[in-house]
Structure formats: structure tokens, C-alpha cells
Design a binder for these strands. Structure first.
Lengths: 115, 115
DNA sequence: ATCGAAGTTTGACAGCCATCGTACTTTTGC
DNA sequence: GCAAAAGTACGATGGCTGTCAAACTTCGAT
């Protein structure tokens, strides 16, 4: 498969895009799980209730916003939270969203299209 | 007109709702302007390029998320940023969004429906 | 070589919501 | 009272995007 997908660098980080990525509960849950785990996680090892194709879509959005870095290990794709770089670009943002209060809610299903 | 519109209290604050409010550039701009001004601002005195009815909609979303408090003064509606209460519910969130980096971009037109 | 596991791509679909114009309500000022 | 000012309410509209299924691609193991 395609080697490593494109990742933006810190100077390219865009708040609007980052917020659009973080506003989705499924995606925020991915970030929260990475933060809690403290280590990289394979796409398939996340706890989420969407189809594989939808999951792929969410990972792509997070990656293009700069929130995660993806790389292959065999057939598995690993996901790493770009903590330090995010903190450099927007200090306090991830902290505010991984707070106890913040984790309290919103880990459920996505808001749009329950279908 | 209707006296004072409904406002949620701190315990009712919901991160999902708050993020949905803050993800829109027009609304984030309203918050930024309030933060910068340091004082309450009339609906009509904000710098924004949307129709009056659209503006009303945005103020309503911000109010229902708990980000602003609205009250009448004559025919004008005043808007106050609920800074302290937001900080209490989600410490660091507003700070992260009113940072220099954060203010750098996204003060333009809304992303959806340029129409 | 073959098969299975893990993701990706593509296309279709549905719902949300930002936007606007018009009509309406309230309050102030004359 | 009347008119203007300031918002609100109500549809209507259109685009964005989250969702899925199905077909495809890669890599690893047998």
C-alpha cells in the first residue's frame, strides 16, 4: 500500500481545521484513547462503533489536521498522537479537551446521521 | 420582546455543544471580539458579514451553549462573555482559543455555504 | 501461490445547519 | 399615535460531511 500518507507540519496547522476535526465525538474519542493509552494504537484496536470505512475517514481527518501521525507496521496502521507539536501550535487546547470534565461526556455515537 | 431568554447553568454545560458552537468561525469571532473588548457588546456592534437573521441564530447558539449571556437594554440586546463560568466548567478551553496563534486565522467568512 | 487480515477507495445517501429574505414584535423618540 | 430602530421568528434552500456497503490493494503466513 501507499507508503506514508501526507502529514502537515506545525507551521501549516490550522485552528479551524483542528476544531472541525475535534468537534466530532468519534474523532475526539480517538484522541482521548491515544492520550489515555500513552502509546501508539493500531486502527483496529480502538474502541468505536463505526464501520471500517468510516473509521478510515475519521483517521484521515485527524491526520490531515495534524492531530495524529500514521505509519505502517505490517498490514496494520499505527496511530500516534502528535501531542508536543499540537501543544507547540495551540498551547492548552488538547489539555482542555482531555480534562476529567471533558472526558465525562461525548464518548458515544456521532451526532450526525445516526441513520 | 421576551424578557430574558433561557440560559444554561454551569452544571448543564456540555462540551459537545460548546465545541459545536465554537467550531463556526463567525461565532468564534464573536467570542474573540467579546474577549478583546473586555466589556459587553450590543448585537449590532459586532464586526460580521452576515444578515441580521443569521446573526440572531449565531447568538442563540452561543447562548444555549452557555458561552454568552444576553440581556436587553432598550431595544438593544447586550452580550456578555461568560468567562468565569466557562473556565470553571472547562479550564483552559477559552484561553486556548483566544491565544495569539488562535486569533491569527479564522476571522473571515464561514466555511459552510458561501452560497 | 493462496488465503486471510487490515485498511483504503469509491459511490450513494441522508441529515444537519449556515444562510438569506420577509414578516412580525417591541421599544424608543418625536 | 406613528415611524424608525433593533432583533426575532419562520420557511426555504443548498452544501458539507458522517455513514455504510462493496470492491480493491497489500502484506504476512501457510
Amino acid at each position: 500500500m501507499g507508503r506514508t500518507p501526507p502529514h502537515p507540519e506545525v507551521p501549516q496547522f490550522d485552528l479551524q481545521r483542528i476544531l472541525e476535526a475535534l468537534v466530532d465525538p468519534v474523532r475526539r474519542s480517538i484522541v482521548t484513547q491515544l492520550e489515555a493509552a500513552g502509546e501508539d494504537i493500531k486502527c483496529g484496536d480502538f474502541d468505536m462503533q463505526v464501520s471500517k470505512s468510516t473509521a478510515t475517514h475519521h483517521f484521515k481527518v485527524l491526520r490531515e489536521a495534524g492531530l495524529i501521525r500514521q505509519y505502517y507496521v505490517g498490514t496494520s496502521r499505527m496511530n500516534a498522537l502528535r501531542r508536543a507539536e499540537m501543544d507547540e501550535a495551540f498551547p492548552g487546547l488538547l489539555d482542555a479537551l482531555t480534562t476529567p470534565q471533558a472526558r465525562g461526556v461525548g464518548l458515544a455515537v456521532s451526532t450526525r446521521s445516526t441513520l
